[in-house]
Amino acid sequence: MTSTDELRELARKCRVHIVNMVHRAQAGHPGGSLSEIDLLAALYKTTLRVRPSEPKWEDRDRFILSKGHASPGMYAILAEMGFITVDDLASYRVLGGICQGHVDMKWCPGVDFSAGSLGMGLSFGMGSAIAGRLEGSERQVYVMLGDGEIQEGSVWEAAMAATHHELGNLNVILDRNRIQNDDFCEAQMRMFDIPAKWKAFGWNVKEIDGHNMDEIVEGMDFLKSSNDGPSILIAHTVKGHGVSFMADNPAFHGAAPNDEQYAQAMAELGEVVA
């Protein structure tokens, strides 16, 4: 069992990869990658049944990054898990590279869903969950949604259908970082009581601090143990968490740091830049 200290160190390394990727590409989405990464570190290390040397293993758990722009976070954890190499991360947003701008199942080992258009991952996850049930498999499906993303109406088509079909093997992690592309969610589209909405659709709901590793591990246990219907872990996070000038700053939803900011970010993350 991986200790929470080890998970925190894993997430720190991933944060370094994330900042490196967007700085090198001078494009991409650091904010949502930094908010989700503690959750991804715990998910991959403690929960997901996957085989990095056999990414297409048929009975693997599925992870679907529906907020596909936060791809640097996923590539970082895939590299740390051994699905891809750390060198592969240099291909982010580069012509021919496996690390496409948005995660793509046709390009990158370990990616189960071609994302990039918000509001699609939960429906795809629902199909994956039905497939697992038809096969009589115990495998689980985990879908990560952004909070801005749930403004897409089709998310709620899927939310309604998932409880109708009693998909206990379908799990959502909601990265509630409160910021979307243009501004704070509160300014773009108020969402009021998000847990109440999911409860009203019949989901099992748990809220956690998405940067507190003890709570995250508890949250993963909740998802694994709630199998009487679909479950959602609402993780309260800070967009850009771990880099002071990116934290809670809408400007870093989809912008890269300059060289000076990069050096500061690396210093804050405990890395010495040569």
Binding site: M105, D112, F113, M120, S123, F124, G125, M126, G127, S128, A129, I130, A131, S154, A158, A161
Partner: peptide
Amino acid sequence: LVGAGLAA
């Protein structure tokens, strides 16, 4: 997209 998940 449920179809896509099943096909995958």
